[in-house]
Design a protein around this nucleic acid. Sequence first.
DNA 1: AGCACGCCGACT
DNA 2: GTCGGCGTGCTC
Length: 721
Amino acid sequence: LSANLKVNSGSEVALTLAQVALDVPIANWFDYRLSPEWAARIRPGSWVEVPWGSGRRIGLVIGLADESTLEARRLREVIRSLDEAPILPDHWLALIKFASAYYHRGYGEIGLPPIPKMFRTPAGPRARQSAFARMRAAKKPARGTTPLPDSDRAGEPLSTTGPNPTAALDTVLSPAQQAAVDALLEAPGFSVQVLHGVTGSGKTEVYLHWFAEILARNPQAQVLLMAPEIALTPQLASLVRRRFQSEQVVVLHSAMPEAERARGWLAAADGRARVVIGTRLSVLTPMPGLAAIVVDEEHDASYRQHDGVHYSARDLAIAAAQHAGIPVLLGSATPSIETWRAVRRGRYRLLSMPQRMGSAQLPSVETVDLRRDRSGRPGTLSAPVLAALESTLATGDQALVFINRRGYAPVMQCEACGWVSRCDHCSAWRVLHRQSPEPDGQAESKSSRYRLQCHHCGQATTPPRACPECGSIGLVGLGRGTQRIEEELAERFPGHAIGRLDRDVAQRRGAAQAVIDSFHQGKVQLLIGTQMLAKGHDFRRLSLVVVAEGDAGLFSADFRAPERLFATLMQVAGRAGRGAQSSRVLIQTRYPEHPLFAHLAQHDYVGFADRMLEERRDAAMPPFSHQALLRADAQTLEPALAWLAQARESGVALCGTDTDPQLFDPVPMPMQRLKGRERAQLLIEARSRARLHAFLDRWLPVLRSARPRMNWQIEIDPAEV
DNA sequence: AGCACGCCGACT
DNA sequence: GTCGGCGTGCTC
């Protein structure tokens, strides 16, 4: 239409429109006029304040133009340029654009939320400038807590205590480690390396040596080290700070105080921080000197973001490396099947470290057949396991019991009528928890020492004294969680110090570290805990690991369940045998003949992964097909299902006679009710990634204008289907 | 996503 | 007689 704006045609002056990304789910960018004053100062990567409706917003300039598809009279003007903010690097803008297209969200929806709130909320110019100035003037973040002794062994990744103290600032690498570092250093530009190293092979040391060389070669270089869990970052940070004393090291994760995160983020975006250690959100941190990325434990499910935009930080790390033209390293003892396929196809380069460092040996892994155990009450420990625990404790060695259920009992039940403690808001049971004793509390009534708590919505209540259905007082906790196992083992092994580590313990500040320290020091001989124990810890006197529920999810409907179980079991088993003594891992299962356990006993990741690839290929599952999930939620299930059915109709209509992609029937989600919402989903599966995205590009706009309105989201490459 | 505007129930 | 419920529409 001729009403479209056409300014500056034929002239050489600066472009007069800024394309501004804002955190609104409508469009990738919004066009704003630029006064000559601002036009001279603004470029892609600049930050601006713009009018928006009746208010103002902060946005990112992602491009400049001299014409708009919008009528000239509807364009408004940039209020001002935020010169104090760091210019965002081109490779970061390219990453945001890529992620936007891949996850089908607006540029601003992807790029703005990871920026600390205080930088993206409008404030007076003076207030903002002084905030930036204050942050930049602030002295370096505190260097951990107490100075820790340096390790005298190659590796020793995350041990934070121990009597091993020398002044050595550097370490000697094993031949395998050195070979990996050499290979990394010759990696040309963008490339993906996979460091497949067994637990205890010293992967962390490889990361650090690679980083050290990169930082030494280029004074502008910055490196990013990603870890799956917040809990792992302090240990990594103190190790890295000791090793790179003259450099600024920052940690970024969602649970830190806003001001501290803002300071660290700004140091990264300014290029001052040379090493950034962070969880999944750190992948979207702008780093002008980004020269290398490590994704540690790359297979870990925690790299997936679940609120807001669903993304895989591992996949985005690869995209970030691609746009920055730098190498990325994926480290794991059990790489994801997707990663393994890329290795097998020759897309990623494999670096292997099949041996543990030094004299440490991998543990022997055995299954314990629960079907043969007559004593078997649900979730309890079998006779062979108890015997093994007894003899281990008797010799003075340490043992670890892993059970992935926190609380006392997974559910409360009425023995008379079968009533169970369901959550009102979720399709889940309320878990019976034993209250941790109050510091000075005493003589509480029996019922108040327990709570019923939903692990999904957090809703907690006092357990009823009598059954709400039939009035019977025969209410019992069914099954076993960490608290009950701890209680039972304390009765069985009096005189041995027992510790527990799960999210309930870790809630109290410093409590998790205290438990871990006392286990390191030998003050605790038997440790019971959840996933939290599985990663990163290097317990030297641990010679027995017990997995109470070794077949959780083995026959789940989710095709990724075996892969996750294998990774978890490998990781837990990997805690044993870090010291000199031989060690055992006992896995309780009802399906000891399952091939997964044979691979596990041989420490045979490669065999397992190849088998998984075969199965996935035969069944045309990812990575041999590409999926997206359309989810809808409503107060009741019916409208959500009906809306999805209608969405499916429109999608099928778009496809015409084409049968790829395939749209499945809408179904309730595996956890149908969550936090009071009923949820349903529809699976879309395509033979190629390109076809999937081409289809979604046509379909999603249709859904956005669909009536009636519905709460819905699209998830690309869903982890669980 | 916010935030306005706009028509229908239970309270001061 | 109002406060307020969320349905609908708009944001360069």
